[in-house]
Each structure stands twice: as C-alpha cells, then as structure tokens.
Design a protein around this nucleic acid. Structure first.
Lengths: 320, 320
DNA sequence: AAATAAAATATAACCGATTATATTTTAGGA
DNA sequence: TCCTAAAATATAATCGGTTATATTTTATTT
C-alpha cells in the first residue's frame, strides 16, 4: 500500500540503514543522496512517524490541553505555541476538557497514548493530580495561566494579583470608591488571584466595606448577567472585570442600562477590549502578554524535553 | 522504561494476544478481564498508539489545517470538530498555514507523516493540489468553508452567494442605494462568492453603477482601514462587510468618524457581531451556522474514513 | 605498495502493539 | 461418558522504521 523505506532501498539499490542514515544526518555519499532524493520524489515517499516513534520513543508532538478552546485566551495560546513549536519541527495535538477535571484526566491519558513528548496545559485541577500520569511516564509538563502545587511542572503565569491591584488602584486614583468586582468562579486560580488583588487595593485604600462581588460564568453572557446584577443594585462607581469575555458582557450590560462604561462609570476590563473602545473611549484594560505567554510556554516545554529543569516564569501585564 | 503489554502479560500470567483481545473487544474470560484491569491499574499501563498504529494503519487522529488559527471562524471549527471527534475516539492535530500555499503543502506532508486517518481543511489552494498527497495515500479530505475543484474531496460550505445576495437585498429594501462592499481578497473563495452575491443584488436592483468595493486584510484593522477609505470618499448609505473581523473593524471606523452603523448608515456584517449590537442596535449580520459546519465536517470525515463517498453539503446562513 | 584509520554501507535485532494460525479449554449434545 | 463445536488462549509473524554491530570501501600514512 504505502511506500516504505524498503521501497526506497530497492529503488536505489541501497539498504534501509543507509536510507535511515540519510534522514538522520548520517554519512551518505553525495551520489547516493541524489539517488535517494530522486526515489523519494518518484515514489512519493512519506515517512511513517509511527514506526519511527516506536523505535525512538519520540513523537515530536506536544499535547495542548485547555479548559475551553473557544475563547480568546485559549486561541491565542494555541496560535502562538503552534507557530513556535512548528518552527522546531513539533506539531500540537489539541484537547478541550470543557472545564471538567474528569475529562482533563481522560484527555491526559489520551495524549500520553499518542506518545506526546510534552504537555502544555491550562490546568483545571490545580492540585495537578491529573498531570501525575504524565510525570510518571517521564513526560514534562508546562502549566500556563494557572499555578499548581506541583513543583515538577514548569509554570508560565502573569502577575495576576499585583496587576489587578494596580488596576484597581488606578480606578481609585480616578476617584471611584464604590468599585464592584466581576471575576467568575473564584476557585479558578486566575479569578481568585485577581479578586485578591482587587481586595488588597480596596483594603489599603480603606474601602474594605465597599468590596462587592458578582459571580457569573466565564462568558459574555456571564459578564452581562453579573454586571446587570451589580448595576441594578447599589449603583457602583466603577467595575473591575477580570477576564476578556466577561468584560465584553459587562460593557454591553451597562450600555443596555444606559450607562457608558469608562464614561458614566469607571471601567477596568481584561485583555484586548479595543473592539469596544470607540464606543466607550474611557475604558481601561489589563493587558496580558498573551502571545509571549504562548511563546514562552513553547520554549519552556522544548527546554524541558531537552532535559532542562522546571522553570517558574512570571510575566507582567500592563494597563492600557 | 514504559509499561508494555508484555508487562501486563507477565503480571497476569496471560499472553500479549489475550491482552490485545481484551483491548479490542475479543473474547476474554471475566476473571481474566479482572486480572488485566488490576494489572493496568497497578502498573499504570498506557497503550502505545505508535505500535498499534504501525500495525493497524490507523491513528484515530484527524489533521485539521487552517489558514489562520486565531480568528473566530477557525476557533469555532476547531472547538466543534474537536468535541464531535473526541466523542468518537478521535483526536485532532492542528496546523496553521498562515494563508501560505507553500506552508499548506508542508503541513499536509507533516500531517500525513503523523498518519492521520483524515484531513479537515479550510483550503488555501483551492485547486486542491496540496491535497493530492493525501488522496495519493488514501487519506480522505473534507474541505470546509471553501469549495475546491477536486471532486474527490467532500465539501461543507454555506450558500455564500445566495445569502449575501439576500443580505444586500435587505439593505436595498430598506432604502439604501449606495452600498459599498468590503470583502477582503476576492481571490479567496468565500470573499469572491460573497462579493458576487452583492453584485447580483445590485445589478438586479438596477444599481450596477453604484457597485463600490474596498479591499483590505482579513482582520479588524483591515476592516477598519477599508471602511475609512469608503466612508471618507463617496459617503455610502450602507456597508456590506463579508466576514467577522472586518465587520468589527468597519463598525469601529464608522464610529470614529461619528457615524453609527445601523443608524446613520445601513450595515450588514457577517457572523456573530452581537458584542457591538448594544452600541449599534440597527446593525444586521449574516449568521453562518458555524457550529453546524464544524459538526458536519466531523461527521463527514468519519463517514469517509468508514468508506463512505465524498459528500457535498451546503448549509444555509440566516440573517439576523 | 602495504598497513592502518576513517568513512560508508550492510546485517540483523528491536521498538510494542495486532493478528493469522494453532492449540488448549470449556460447553453442549447424543 | 465420549465426541464435537465453540470459546478462550497461545504462538509467532508482522507493521516500518532505527541502531548496534559487522563488513566493505575509501582515504591516509609510512
């Protein structure tokens, strides 16, 4: 059926070992190289990575595991790691666990059975139990966005707490006292950290009593609903929303209530909310260096595959 | 190093063949099943898909190849196919060719060497030459979003021309005569079809002379720039923008010029532009059934892998 | 030109599963 | 109870590469 290295051997009069040497940088005479290349072209040979991986125990493939593919943050991570990794000859297998710890575990087994050389994960289970299986099989893991308790993993995160604190301070400096936070499920690492930053800022400004929090799903709809709840109750002077989708929803909710975010009330969102800015020029956002996160995660997993130690990298978000 | 089927055999006192039968639905006595399961748990066995794939010539992996991962359309496709395919036990390997035909070709070879069982592609090269290598290796291909000239491929597309024509007609019915189109590079299948639909509507309404087109990159910035160009020149009465990112950019550009899309001028965008709607209640959009596209693509590739024929599926977009 | 070292190629074992075929065990029927 | 068919398990070949080791060829040295 498919063209194998043996067919190349037959075609060229060489043996499989020589063909293999050709592919792997061994010493092959120039005129034999030419013959091999000609045969590859003629027969349309494509190397079977299964046979290769079976022998070498390397797949040159990285598993990427996300709680939800279809959001801005995940997409950017996928895009950036894919680019960085492919330049190094690695492909990515993507899995989405839909924020379920159980599915995360399944997905990791699935990826390990695909013999991935490494794993880049936005961990759902921050105790990182799910990653145990990887460690057991000697597959290095890089956790992105969320810190786990497992020191065997590399971590690439942003300064969530500090950036959020600064962001809220900025709202306070502009005169806001009643600032409500919308962060999503606080058990999620980033939400918890960002909310903690908000609280610290409020406390240090003596606004402890004004701390207000509305919950909601990590989605545009969730942000919309949470903001409505907050704004309908005690009219806040400002909103602090700690992720992209909820930021968009919150701005929409305000507008639907006749309130311009960034104008009538202070607004600090998260990530690249530029799309809305023409309509709400005054809104601010904490900008995560998402592309850099993806790139650094890719570099880190490669470094670990090459035997490097687990790293702990914190990137800084800026406010714009 | 890693735990193999032989280790399970040793642990249970059975042979590899029996263990294999266990995994593949063969007849195994209950008490042996129990022993095997116990051994799997105890030793932490994970099946080596390389060895399996080498023997069976199946990887249970689908290659997904996109011109650009980081846009809304691609993301939705990835998300939906991943979900559908994983339910059937398939994983996806994602590649991004950054709209380059050369990289598309490379990516296909890459995916084929990973022994993918099928390919879901948004084809950059609509002559589908790049997919030849796949066909040659007996790997079925589903083209999504863009039609190619290759009848061996399945196609899952929307009724681009008709939907666009209807959309423009709607603008005309509302009284607009000077309608400008912003579609991106017309050599791209969808852009070309949608522009054709626009032209048909204009012609049939006797507005042939008003046909206006501004080019730009497939991005928010591209839409922004194109809209500025159009609106600064001959003030249009309406805009027809034929993809999501450019729609967002165009609305932003209008707003920056003091023009409310959907209010001051008619506006027909593409895909899910709800985020902006609170600020421009009058905007309309052609809604592609993106999730369905992804799901149908997944179903189609599975059907082809199971020996089914190439399909030709057209889904209808609705205007909202 | 002979001896030796280095380079290129060949031989054959191996990676870890599946599977065709063979063998043993169990079940059912006369 | 014995015989036969069916079920369960075992044996061994195989998938398509890589690689340790052996062999042959080429290059270098004396």
């Amino acid at each position: 059926m498919s063209v194998t290295i043996k067919d190349l051997a037959k075609e060229t009069g060489l043996t499989p070992a020589t063909i293999s040497a050709y592919f792997n940088g061994g010493n092959v005479r120039d005129y034999n190289k030419a013959k091999i290349e000609e045969a590859i072209e003629k027969l349309g040979y494509i190397r079977n990575d299964f046979a290769r991986g079976l022998r070498t125990h390397k797949s040159r493939t990285i598993g990427v595991l996300l709680p939800e593919i279809a959001n801005k943050f995940s997409t950017s991570i996928i895009s950036e790691t894919e680019e960085s990794l492919r330049m190094k000859g690695y492909g990515i297998i993507v899995c989405d666990c839909r924020s379920s710890v159980k599915r995360e575990k399944e997905a990791i087994r699935f990826l390990l059975s695909k013999m991935v050389d490494g794993l880049i994960v936005i961990p759902e289970d921050t105790s990182a139990n799910a990653c145990l299986a990887a460690a057991q099989n000697g597959v290095p893991v890089v956790a992105v966005d969320r810190r786990t308790g497992n020191p065997a993993l590399s971590h690439v995160v942003i300064n969530n707490r500090e950036a959020s604190k600064n962001a809220v301070n900025m709202l306070i400096e502009r005169g806001a006292k009643e600032i409500a936070a919308i962060c999503g499920d606080l058990n999620v690492y980033t939400a918890g950290e960002r909310f903690a930053g908000y609280c610290e800022a409020m406390k240090e400004a003596g606004l402890e009593e004004n701390i207000t929090y509305a919950n909601g799903a990590f989605s545009v709809q969730g942000g919309y609903d949470a903001a409505k709840k907050v704004l309908e109750g005690n009219p806040a002077q400002a909103l602090f929303v700690s992720n992209y989708e909820m930021s968009v929803g919150a701005v929409m909710a305000a507008k639907d209530m006749g309130i311009i975010a960034g104008g009538d009330i202070g607004f600090m969102g998260f990530d690249d909310i530029d799309y809305i800015k023409p309509f709400c020029p005054g809104i601010l956002g904490v900008r995560q260096p998402i592309k850099e996160l993806g790139r650094v995660a890719a570099e880190t997993i490669i470094s670990m595959i090459d035997g490097g130690p687990a790293r702990n990298i914190v990137l800084n978000a800026e406010i714009r």
